Amino acid sequence: MDRRPFIGVSTYLVDASWSDWRSRRVALVPERYTAYVRDSGGIAVLLPPDAPERAPEVLARLDALVIAGGPDIDPAYYGRPRHPLTDVDSPERDVWETALVRAALAAGMPMLGICRGMQVLNVVCGGTLVQHLPDVVSPDVHAGSPGRYGAHSVRPVPGTLLGGLLPESELVVPTFHHQAVDRLGDGLRVSAHAPDGTVEAVEGPGFALGVQWHPEQGEDLRVMQALVRAATAARTVPLEAVPLEAVSG
């Protein structure tokens, strides 16, 4: 029996409060990511930060990888001093996600980086980041407002993977970021721009795609549906159905 592909989604550690519990350390990711995977035909598997050497073992159990959005990656990873407005507060996430991306690239696993995830992909490939976009583009249309996503247009590059998935010359996307690609990483190419020239998507060999916007916050499933298709095509050993009596005790 065939199955829907397992899509690993990176999570992060924060202090949260709920019910009778206060300031408990939790691993979480916004529910829109898991809904995005589910609505596109995949099964989301949450990946809390772990030891980097375990990344290949984790990915061996999955069919594709999503690196979610979030705070800025430490600029030490690309050899730059920290900008005063760089938001670095997730060292365990930096270690884990860079290990996941390296392992996925080495294995040729289909991968999608969203916002921060695209930046991690670029940094892992040797690229650098603009640490605060308002320093180089004006007006700033990329960041939205506190607690709310913004929207702006992007222009996919014809002839790229993304250009094939989104063939329109321009489309409006949900956005919330203040950093972007500066020097492009080795083996990557740009596959979308904003009208102000900001890099909005990059891609590498196979299905290694990063988008600077937040597709999980909108209704357009095409990018994730393509990842699910790529994961299904790449899977060589389908999971066999397990008889109910084997697991019912």
Rank of each mutant, 00 (worst) to 15 (best):
A76K: 03
I114R: 00
A106E: 15
T34E: 12
F6V: 07
R24P: 04
D186C: 08
R24H: 14
R93K: 03
P48G: 09
E240D: 07
Q217D: 15
D186L: 10
Q179S: 06
T232S: 15
V172F: 02
V123G: 01
V124L: 03
P139W: 04
W18L: 12
G69V: 06
L13Q: 13
S153P: 00
V9M: 07
T232K: 08
P205L: 09
Y12R: 01
G187L: 08
V242A: 10
V26F: 03
L129D: 00
A233Y: 08
R25M: 11
E168K: 07
G117V: 06
E203S: 07
R24F: 12
E97R: 03
Y36L: 08
P30T: 11
Q225K: 15
L184F: 09
G8M: 09
E97Y: 06
R189Y: 09
F6I: 05
V223D: 10
D94P: 02
E31F: 09
A68L: 04
E97K: 00
S191E: 02
T11V: 09
G163S: 08
Q179T: 13
A208H: 11
A55V: 14
D2A: 08
L100N: 05
T232Q: 14
A76Q: 09
R3N: 13
L162A: 07
P56L: 08
T175M: 03
L47K: 00
V157S: 04
L62H: 13
S138C: 02
G163T: 08
A230E: 14
R189L: 10
E168P: 04
S10T: 15
A27D: 12
V247A: 11
E219T: 14
L105R: 13
F176A: 12
V202I: 15
E240H: 09
V199S: 04
L166H: 03
V237N: 11
G8P: 09
S138M: 01
G144N: 04
A99W: 11
A106D: 14
V124N: 00
S23F: 13
V101T: 09
P215M: 06
S153T: 13
G79R: 13
P156W: 00
S138Y: 11
D39Y: 07
P146D: 04
G204V: 10
D20Y: 05
P56W: 06
G127W: 06
P110D: 12
L184K: 13
G163Y: 02
E31A: 14
V190C: 06
L188V: 12
L65R: 01
V190N: 03
L112S: 07
P243S: 02
L100H: 05
R189N: 06
S191N: 08
V172Y: 00
D15G: 10
E97M: 01
S17R: 14
E168V: 14
A241Q: 09
I7S: 05
L28K: 02
Q119F: 04
P174W: 03
P30D: 14
D94F: 03
R116A: 02
G163C: 08
G249L: 14
D220A: 06
R3M: 10
V95C: 03
R148S: 12
T86H: 01
G164C: 05
F6H: 10
M109E: 11
E92W: 07
A231E: 13
M224W: 06
R3Y: 12
A51I: 11
L100R: 00
V247L: 14
